[in-house]
């Protein structure tokens, strides 16, 4: 196995162009599991650890540019206000040791439907910046996942960073698993409120071949909140609205039976997560008066 150690981003792109089958590795928490167990025997690895910019983030006016290899522990520590949904999800990744190494770029590269980063990225709104020697392109995150553990990357492309919309309202993430660490999600749900545009975002994990949004649920909730004037009044979301929202979230799922749970359980649990996270974000919205027009 050849080990390529590019010193900067330009060298990394050249290495990937010259070795399209080479596997990029940063934290290693996903790739190494497969290598240690002989599930994957790449001819070459491209070590991204020397590329400083991949471990940097920058907060802009509307978006956060998050380097692909910023470890989860730093997202939790340094970006809980700008990216609250992702920070909550990051708390549930692996264990403290894993969170010190792993980052969002690896989650996107692996493109597992169970990856913890995906629901908050979908809910908040994000674009994945990928690059090759041919140039750079930005892919909306919902178009990035193309199948089970498949993504939109071309063989010569690497993930450079993710541009994530800064939170303009409350965000939540919830995940079902058997314990509080080292858990691959049975199902997961991310929810973001955007009071400025009076829209909501959702992200569903581990309940379909790819991470998905529940577009019909989003539109229903936006309309229901609008028609009842709840964005302005900060009133309680009627249980019937929360119930219909949860039903529509479940309708967007397409789960399977596997070792972690049955499709039926996943549908049930997803509905619970949808109602629960809606409660949480709406309570926070009412409490903090996020951009609310009247008191």
């Amino acid at each position: 196995m050849e080990f390529l150690r590019p010193a900067d981003w330009t060298e990394a792109l050249a290495a990937k162009a010259a070795h399209p089958s080479a596997v990029p590795i940063a934290g290693g928490t996903d790739v190494m599991v497969e290598i240690n167990f002989g599930l994957r025997r790449p001819d070459a690895l491209i070590d991204l650890n020397r590329i400083v910019e991949l471990r940097e983030w920058e907060v802009g006016a509307d978006t956060v540019r998050l380097g692909a290899a910023v470890p989860y522990s730093r997202i939790i520590d340094e970006l809980p206000t700008e990216l609250p949904g992702l920070a909550l999800a990051a708390h549930t990744v692996g264990s403290p040791q894993i969170r010190n190494r792993g980052g969002v770029g690896g989650n996107l590269g692996a493109a597992s439907p169970a990856g913890d980063s995906h629901p908050p990225l979908l809910a908040a709104g994000a674009e994945v910046e990928v690059a090759s020697v041919r140039g750079t392109r930005r892919i909306p995150v919902e178009e990035f996942y193309t199948g089970v553990k498949r993504n939109a990357l071309a063989p010569d492309e690497l993930i450079r960073c993710v541009h994530i919309k800064r939170a303009d309202g409350p965000q939540q993430f919830s995940k079902v698993g058997t314990r509080n660490a080292m858990v691959i999600a049975v199902c997961a749900f991310g929810l973001a409120l955007h009071p400025a545009t009076r829209t909501v975002g959702t992200g569903l994990g581990s309940v379909a071949p790819t991470p998905v949004r529940a577009g019909a649920a989003e539109r229903f909730l936006e309309q229901a909140l609008d028609e009842a004037g709840l964005w302005d009044s900060g009133g309680v979301v009627p249980p019937a609205v929360a119930g219909k929202f949860a039903d529509l979230v479940v309708a967007a799922a397409n789960p399977i039976d596997d070792v972690r749970g049955t499709a039926g359980y996943r549908r049930h649990a997803l509905a619970v997560l949808a109602r629960r996270t809606l409660d949480w974000v709406w309570d926070e919205y009412r409490g903090k008066e996020w951009g609310r027009a009247c008191a």
Binding site: F3, R5, M32, V33, Q97, I98, N100
Partner: peptide
């Protein structure tokens, strides 16, 4: 376990705890 589940290989690399079964030595230069 050799795949980051058990934590019995935990060491400190540059002051941070990591599972060293999931680190290639060449990446720790």
């Amino acid at each position: 376990c050799d795949h980051g589940q058990c934590g019995s290989c935990t060491v400190l690399v540059d002051g941070r705890r990591v599972n060293c079964c999931l680190l290639l030595t060449v990446a720790c230069d």
